[in-house]
Design a protein around this nucleic acid. Sequence first.
DNA 1: CACAAACATATTATATAATGATACGCTAAA
DNA 2: TTTAGCGTATCATTATATAATATGTTTGTG
Lengths: 286, 286
Amino acid sequence: MIKETPYAAGNQDQISNTAPIHLIAKNTMTKTKQNTLFVSTLAKGLRLLRAFDETHTELSLTKLAEMTGLEKSAVQRLANTLHLEGMLDKDAETRRYRPSHAWLRLAYAYYWSDALVARAMPKLIDLSRHLGETVNLAELSGQEIIYAARLPCKRTTFAASVPGRTVPALSTSAGQCILATFPEEERAAAIRDWLVHAQTPRTTIDRAEISRQIGIVAETGHAITHGQMILSELGIACAIRGPDGRAWSAVHCSVSEHSWDIARIHEEILPWLQDTANAIQPLLRP
Amino acid sequence: MIKETPYAAGNQDQISNTAPIHLIAKNTMTKTKQNTLFVSTLAKGLRLLRAFDETHTELSLTKLAEMTGLEKSAVQRLANTLHLEGMLDKDAETRRYRPSHAWLRLAYAYYWSDALVARAMPKLIDLSRHLGETVNLAELSGQEIIYAARLPCKRTTFAASVPGRTVPALSTSAGQCILATFPEEERAAAIRDWLVHAQTPRTTIDRAEISRQIGIVAETGHAITHGQMILSELGIACAIRGPDGRAWSAVHCSVSEHSWDIARIHEEILPWLQDTANAIQPLLRP
DNA sequence: CACAAACATATTATATAATGATACGCTAAA
DNA sequence: TTTAGCGTATCATTATATAATATGTTTGTG
């Protein structure tokens, strides 16, 4: 809880972080009292970066304009700037832009700034070697879980093997066991308000059911979910608690339903998972 | 070689990608003919992002101003904007800024845009499981190698276990075996001009020696280096060639000198490494 | 092959919006 | 208590981003 509330912003060009960009568009040009501490040009540039995702891996100028809701010429200038600055690669043939290696460099800088990752990494490596299964370090990021470190051991979906993926906290074992450490009231509010999204046919979207599950998690100290994000995937997670007992991260293990059942998970995975989570000590980060 | 040369830039606020930011500073304010396709405000914002690295994990406003060479007030505005946009976290006590989770989200978007990673990932997982050793996917990025995907199997340094790290191509097995696939002339130019940096006491900085090594690599088809980046580390790499025979990426394996010798590497690692590299087919990316 | 549509690229007048100087206030050290 | 250092806030000025438009280039179609 160290994060502070950002300055109230006068310029409404800025967009909420979680909302899908392409839904905002257009009406961003209505001006209000300008906050001189907000540089809208920079914010617009960032919108271009955020336009890229799983389904938009390379974008033309016009597509970029469409997605960001910015003027064609603005996009032209901003994209060109990002290209010159090495933030976007440009395909000479198709003239389309793509994320550059600089995006990975930023991730590298992030890793050094997140003390938890440094702390966890060696222990996660040991764990994954011992289990022979995929383990992840998950952190709470708003209403979502972000997989900060991933050690895939078995072939799996691409989404499950690269870091940086975010999923609704309520729909994941990691999110559930983090929430289970929250004080009653906050937990209830989260269960009521936070986003859920039916990723698979088996994703639990009933909030009462989610509440019940998290209740159990709070008692047992671990969470197990079935096919919430990927069918036939079992997610097992233990929270990493801070000194106050509250967690904002978790150790997560992902296995296949076809090779594991609940009994074996309890015997062969949970003890080691719990151990690893405990061993990664509390730190100062949000 | 699909990348195109960016527009000539009129505004010299922009900085070369590879040069250390803090060395540029100051004299960026001398104006020239403005290129209207270059948005200097955006470029300045990016400078703030790039100010963060291994050694600068959280920065105060004044430190940020010092490092970027920007006015105190400019930094104030830009940092505040980045904070509002969710690109920088702010410690409420120390008032210092840090990379946010958004940096990992960008990395995630990058991964989807890089078809090679998607292609390589399952094969790298198999390889790392088979060898029981750390394997990486390395891509050429300017004069450097960037580790795009990392599958650490043994405890190692933090730098060697997170993706996004860049190292001089000439000093790494991955870089050497990529360069070995280049036409004679280009290779020579690279050996002559590209940066090298004495990371450890054992890093080869003699370009003649590097040239000799790459010559051998070109014949054998693989590269092995000793303690170039980390003492007691052996790096083994095989290039991933495109249809024209030229490579811009490599599969890399990192093992400890204490548990491996050259003979065993030839027997137990190289065949599988080579196999994996061959199996990851040519794609269209730069 | 010609024509049109779609898109990228380039230019310019205009006023919006970034600028940087400065002042204020807080905290911690002297 | 004073001072230094830093973060925060304000504002007049004009540099700089803007959006409209024109030009060039590629792609696809009748």
